[in-house]
């Protein structure tokens, strides 16, 4: 059995510097964008001296991925890095198709170098990518060329990503990683079903938009989504995600926030684990949620949004 004691101890030491709910509240209460930046700098968001919110948050995200790469390997690390690869495939395919330079949209931290992905898609030569990524990149490009439908291309890539994450989790044999993969797929399916229902999409589209894995009954979910938001709420109320139905009725942004909080619930038990990979994933999710929250607050402050409006959109914290 793989040992995580050293990695978890490093995570515990790092957790001490995560922003608490009180810190987030203090950040929201900052009287200006500048004072919010000052507060963040005091709490470790140095951002290499940058003054721009996006640069500061991007630096923190890169630092987190570098840290996770140091302490994790195998399936655990791949589950974290695969979404970056699939994002890079999506961004590369769309920018190459549109004939624009999309290198700014690519992210660091995937299993494959972002420039290798971009060049492979640009040159339609996928031999430098691993078998799965090469197949997905080639098929995504072919799909976009054939249908000229960016949404269909994104759906295909996302579904392949969930498939890859699920396969990694299964390969690891770790129950926590399997639960992670299932919740990620389920919340993505719930979001896709809700958006489709709200937009009045037809059944063939919804079936393509949903990922066939996870724990939900996907054909039934698709059918419910076709019948509208009310039917979907009724269907979801009878699943393990019953709470989500209430949030669906409350509105899109509250429901999406609930989906993100649902993923964060994975971290609940991790506080009391010392020898499993759960605290590592929990820290990554917590830090990801934290940087997302910081980005949201900074953008809100810069746009002079009211504190209550910002507070409504803030996700729950881990510490």
């Amino acid at each position: 059995m793989k040992e995580y004691t050293y990695s978890v101890a490093r995570v515990r030491a790092k957790e001490a510097s995560l922003l608490t709910s009180r810190d987030i509240e203090q950040l929201i209460a900052s009287d200006s964008y500048e004072s919010a930046l000052r507060f963040l700098r005091d709490r470790g968001y140095s951002g290499g001296g940058a003054d721009d919110a996006e640069d500061i948050v991007a630096a923190a995200e890169k630092e987190t991925l570098d840290f996770i790469s140091e302490i994790a390997d195998g399936a655990l690390l791949n589950i974290i890095r695969l979404p970056v690869d699939y994002h890079n495939i999506k961004a590369s395919v769309k920018s190459v198709f549109s004939g624009i330079d999309g290198t700014d949209l690519l992210l660091d931290g995937g299993t494959a170098d972002k420039n290798v992905i971009y060049e492979s898609v640009r040159n339609r030569s996928y031999s430098e990518l691993d078998q799965t990524l090469a197949r997905v990149a080639e098929e995504a490009m072919a799909l976009l060329l054939r249908t000229q439908d960016g949404q269909a291309c994104a759906i295909y890539t996302d579904n392949e990503m969930f498939k890859a994450i699920e396969a990694e989790a299964k390969k690891s044999g770790d129950a926590f990683l399997k639960r992670c993969a299932a919740i990620l797929a389920d919340t993505a399916n719930l979001k896709a079903a809700y958006r489709s229902a709200a937009a009045g999409k037809n059944l063939p589209f919804i079936k393509t938009a949903l990922y066939s894995g996870g724990t939900l009954n996907v054909p039934a979910l698709a059918q419910a989504a076709e019948n509208g938001v009310d039917a979907l709420c009724e269907h979801v109320a009878a699943t393990d995600y019953a709470d989500g139905a209430e949030y669906m009725k409350a509105g899109a942004h509250l429901f999406e926030k609930w989906c993100d909080d649902e993923v964060m619930k994975l971290t609940d038990g991790a506080r009391y684990e010392s020898f499993s990979p759960a605290p590592i994933i929990a820290y990554y999710l917590a830090k990801k949620a934290e940087t997302g929250t910081v980005r949201l607050i900074l953008e809100g402050k810069r746009s002079r949004l009211g504190d209550d409006m910002i507070r409504e959109r803030v996700r729950r914290t881990y510490v």
């Binding site: 040992e3 004691t5 050293y6 978890v8 101890a9 995570v11």
Partner: peptide, 17 residues
């Protein structure tokens, strides 16, 4: 050994401990 792994992890992040 088990405690040592945890100790090494903590000291990597915070040598003062």
């Amino acid at each position: 050994g088990i405690a040592g792994q945890a100790a090494a992890g903590v000291v990597t992040e915070d040598p003062s401990k």
